[in-house]
Design a protein around this nucleic acid. Structure first.
Length: 554
RNA sequence: GCGCUCGUAGCUCAGUGGAUAGAGCACAGGCCUCCGAAGCCUGGGGUCGUGGGUUCAAAUCCCGCCGAGCGCGCCA
């Protein structure tokens, strides 16, 4: 629609120039926006105000010249007005809006899908929790945001891959193995000193206990070093399986689980470094090998190979990103917690040092999550292992509420998760509000089916009968859905979906209060059933993008 | 100290160059003989942290200051 209006306006400006009302030298690309208030029409443009400075004429006069030359051959406008300081407001005809109902019927769960991505390959890497312990609430947020973003990009026409990077290498893993080994020996009555920097959480003991339950105390015979190495392997397996299970409980499925260790084993790191050597951004200092990331806006240069010959995490990450790019992705999207934002410049620098444009990689930084219960902040500490895990949260509030809540806010703000609110089955709780609208419509449709009224076919239905304000408001909102998908996908802000879902649910409820769907007028019943079923379809589609269920009863 | 993110109604947040700055919650009052009241309607409530600048137009862009969160390893 925006394109249609732009074409109309551009032509009008052209004709105004020919008529000598606007100087030929003027040049402008019309920009359209949706006015906040519907009394200002469905679309508005500011071209007249932009042109005013070029033409040295008052903006309203320029607007008049343009409006005069608008030639709406296809007649999708009902009215064009000049308002305020020089806005041109466009009012679309009701007839045009009613066409969307037919479109929704036709496209069904594909309504809202676009081809803006043109099949480009996009990878979304998210969660990537270290497999050394349970996932925290922040991981839940990245999971909800990443999965919804992946759904959105798919709907927008991209070819999307969901990927989880498994940090199964390095010091952290070693400490993890030692921690489990120590607890294992401790439970079996050995006198052990728990590693000073070891993982304190209760779950370490649980893992150790599980191993004892299954295989007894036979590993006590191993040396301490062997034990740590051995326990690292089996305990890591357990944790990773657990992570997969919890994510699956949330409905999040990854296409690729990429192991950091595989980069070390395949010599991918050496290859990446030797490629960087050719670019002259590599230098040696203090016995270590460095990458000059300061050449690309980083604070300081970074070590790739330590003095002891071991590659750093950063070196592995460079190899990982090089691997991603070699796999042919047109765009990489990483979702990271705010505690990693200091790492952004470094990785972007590496992308450029490898010879790729910086915008190949988009990094979304998500702020962390605080848990509130009954008006009180739940304190958590990683060090002592005292925390509420994602698994516990899912058990308590359910996947739908958790996902919806995690999506509700912009990732730029820290999120206060109110666990009582998420659990409450009342209108305070937005997820119920939206789901209720869907269930309510399903109930109406069941009722209509019993009466023999319902037909999903628009043929023979007179949609012109839909002319109440609340009906037209609802239709307008339905027609907005594709645009919501477009902006949320292009700006990569899935939280927009929650607001749209709430607006749509609200407009349905208003309609429902004002208009009776199943009444005495059979023709009107049919038309309203089409409207209501379209609303159900779009609610279902938007909830689907968010990964939240659309219940028929609740 | 430096960097990133943020500061909008009592609370939680939308609004990222346009018109009178919005929503939910909370608070006060109203609406079910009829398709789901988990709903709807009405009302009060604001120095957009602060001081400058750019612009026809600034909550939005730029600079300073104040305040909050996070980061600043040859950890991952």
């Amino acid at each position: 629609m925006k394109e249609n209006l732009a074409k109309l306006t551009t032509n009008a400006i052209l004709h105004a120039k020919e008529a000598g009302e606007v100087p030929l030298s003027c040049n402008v690309k019309p920009f359209f926006e949706r006015p906040k208030d519907k009394i200002h029409g469905d679309w508005a443009t500011n071209v007249a105000m932009v042109l005013a400075s070029q033409t040295k004429q008052p903006p309203r006069k320029v607007a008049e010249s343009i409006v005069k030359h608008i030639d709406d051959k296809k007649r999708f406008l009902s009215k064009v007005e000049i308002a305020g300081p020089g806005f041109i407001n466009f009012y679309l005809s009701d007839r045009w809006f009613r066409e969307t109902l037919k479109e929704i019927k036709l496209k069904r769960d594909k309504f809202g899908h676009l081809d803006m991505g043109c099949g480009e390959k996009v990878q979304v890497e998210f969660v990537s929790a270290n497999p050394v312990g349970p996932m925290h609430l922040g991981h839940g947020r990245w999971a909800a945001v990443g999965d919804a973003l992946a759904n959105l990009m798919t709907a927008a026409g991209y070819d999307v891959t969901r990927e989880f990077y498994v940090n199964d290498y390095g010091n952290q893993m070693r400490i993890f193995g030692c921690s489990v080994a120590a607890r294992y020996a401790e439970i079996l009555g050995e006198d052990v000193v728990f590693p000073e920097d070891g993982y304190q959480g209760e779950y370490i003991k649980e893992i150790a206990q599980e191993i004892i339950d299954k295989e007894g105390g036979k590993y006590l015979k191993l040396s301490e070093e062997q034990r740590g190495e051995f326990f690292k392997k089996i305990a890591y397996r357990q944790v990773l399986d657990h992570i997969k299970k919890v994510l699956l409980d949330m409905g999040v499925k990854f296409d690729v689980w990429f192991s950091e260790t595989s980069l070390h084993e395949s010599r991918a790191i050496e290859e990446a470094i030797s490629e960087l050597r050719e670019q002259e951004y590599i230098f040696e200092k203090d016995g270590a090998l460095w990458l000059r990331t300061t050449a690309f806006k980083d604070d300081k240069d970074r070590v790739l190979i330590r003095e002891n010959g071991e590659p750093t995490y950063f070196a592995a990450d460079i190899a990982y990103h090089k691997n991603k790019l070699n796999r042919g992705f047109d765009k990489l999207i990483n979702i990271w917690g705010a505690d990693h934002h200091g790492y952004v410049q470094r990785v972007k620098a590496a992308i450029r040092a490898l010879g790729y444009p910086e915008d190949k990689l988009e990094i979304i930084i998500g702020q962390l999550v605080n848990l509130w219960r009954g008006g009180e902040l739940v304190r958590m500490s990683k060090r002592t292992g005292e925390m509420v895990t994602l698994e516990e949260l899912l058990e308590e509030v359910g996947s739908d509420a958790a996902r919806y809540f995690f999506l509700m806010r912009s990732t730029d703000t820290p999120f206060d998760f109110d666990i009582e609110l998420a659990k409450s089955q009342s209108s305070d709780n937005p997820v119920y509000y939206v789901q209720y609208a869907h269930a309510r419509i399903c109930s109406i449709i069941r009722f209509a089916e019993e009466k023999g009224f319902f037909s999903s076919d628009t043929k023979g239905v007179n949609l012109e009968l839909l002319c109440e304000e609340s009906e037209l408001d609802l239709i307008r909102k339905l027609a907005e859905f594709e645009e919501v998908v477009e902006t949320s996908a292009s700006k990569m802000i899935p939280y927009r979906l929650t607001k749209y879902a709430e607006d749509l649910a609200s407009l349905f409820h208003v309609f429902y209060t004002k208009c009776r769907v199943i009444g005495d007028d059979v023709e009107l019943n049919k038309a309203r059933l089409i409207l209501v079923d379209s609303a159900r379809q779009v609610l279902s589609n938007v909830l689907g993008l968010m990964g939240v269920s659309a219940p028929e009863k609740m």
